[in-house]
């Protein structure tokens, strides 16, 4: 990835110097060992901070939406003829570009508002999974080289194969290369294993209704309603989320079990045709709630019922914003 990083920094520098973008959203080295964290580069000389590796977890489309919305709000009191466009540059892999396609489909901003630096992706490390793999030891230092993660830990030196600790969403990712971009860094990454993407969902579907309910209950009982999943999700951008609405109040705040289930069910359901399986919500969840088991079902249904994969093409409309008389399944209709 060294080579890609060098090119990425050069490209970011150039875009800032040529004023093609006012800010570049990318990743920098995190404060903890073996982590990377989102960063915002506004000066060309800062571009050397940028990194691109298997530790870049979060989907940066979230911040693209945030910055553009912020800018638009700041322009509200400016006379229309004096309004300026602020171009946001972003380092984007497959799922980040899918999230931006969803934003564009949902008319959140215009294509010209973003300058996409596409990067090939071969997945990121599931931090929680890695921790389990090394028996809960604390990582003191580490590096990734040649598909191996080398670590100095509180329990001695350890080596784990990258493949074994890739996030679930990455291991079965169908779109690991950018779908849209303005500049592309490096050549396309080899495909992951998309054929296995619904295996977990299929196995869960095969269980009985009561078993499924028991699993949902158990998982949601872990949730402490911190809302981190929502905050991390690029598709969760409502100015006022239903969770905070008070007229009407859709769901109670606090720790009531049913409220939590309702919160989860509703947020999950809002992701039909909008979840790109970037895993950002899963990665930030402090309680390890298995959100993906449920999100992936929505994705599967959306593909099976309507032939749509969220954010996979600029030509698509949001799947819930249209219907297809001839191909949509009708078996859910009562007494047709």
């Amino acid at each position: 990835m060294e080579n890609i990083e060098t090119k990425l920094r050069e490209e970011a520098k150039r875009l800032l110097l040529e004023k093609k973008a006012e800010v570049i959203i990318g990743y920098e080295k995190g404060t903890l060992p073996l982590t990377a964290t989102p960063c915002f580069i506004t000066k060309p000389e800062e571009a050397d901070k940028l990194v691109w590796n298997n530790l870049c977890t979060q989907n940066l489309a979230k911040f693209v939406h945030d910055l553009i919305t912020q800018h638009k709000n700041s322009q509200k009191r400016v006379k229309p003829e004096d309004r300026k466009r602020k171009v946001i540059g972003v380092v984007a892999r497959g799922c980040t570009t899918r999230s931006m396609i969803i934003h564009l489909q949902e008319r959140q901003y215009e294509r010209e508002d973003v300058c996409i630096i596409g990067v090939p992706c071969d997945g990121y490390v599931d931090g929680k999974g890695l921790k389990v793999k090394i028996g809960g030891a604390d990582i003191i230092d580490g590096a990734i080289e040649g598909g191996q993660i080398q670590m100095k830990t509180s329990d001695g030196d350890k080596t784990v194969a990258l493949k074994e600790v890739l996030a679930d969403c990455c291991a079965t990712c169908r779109f690991n290369n950018p779908i849209i971009s303005d500049v592309m860094i490096g050549s396309a990454a080899p495909p992951m294993n998309p054929d296995a993407e619904y295996e977990e969902v299929n196995a869960f579907e095969a269980k009985s209704m009561e078993e499924r309910w028991a699993y949902f209950t158990r998982e949601m009982d872990k949730c402490m309603r911190c809302n981190a999943c929502r905050q991390a999700c690029p598709s969760c951008y409502c100015p006022t989320c239903f969770v905070e609405q008070s007229q009407p109040q859709w769901v109670g705040i606090g720790e009531d079990q049913t409220d939590t289930q309702v919160f989860q069910f509703m947020r999950l359901y809002h992701m039909v045709g909008r979840c790109v399986d970037c895993g950002s919500c899963v990665a930030v969840c402090p309680m390890g709630v298995d959100l993906r088991k449920f999100l992936k079902k929505l994705d599967k249904d959306c593909f099976e019922f309507f032939g749509n994969r969220a954010g996979s093409s600029m030509e698509d409309m949001p799947p819930l914003g249209k219907f297809d008389e001839h191909h949509d399944k009708g078996d859910f209709v009562y007494n047709p």
């Binding site: 949902f216 039909v272 449920f294 929505l298 249904d301 799947p319 819930l320």
Partner: peptide, 13 residues
């Protein structure tokens, strides 16, 4: 489409 997916998702959970 919303009803189709909602019904299916309710069953799933």
């Amino acid at each position: 489409r919303k009803f189709a997916t909602l019904k299916s998702f309710l069953n799933y959970v």
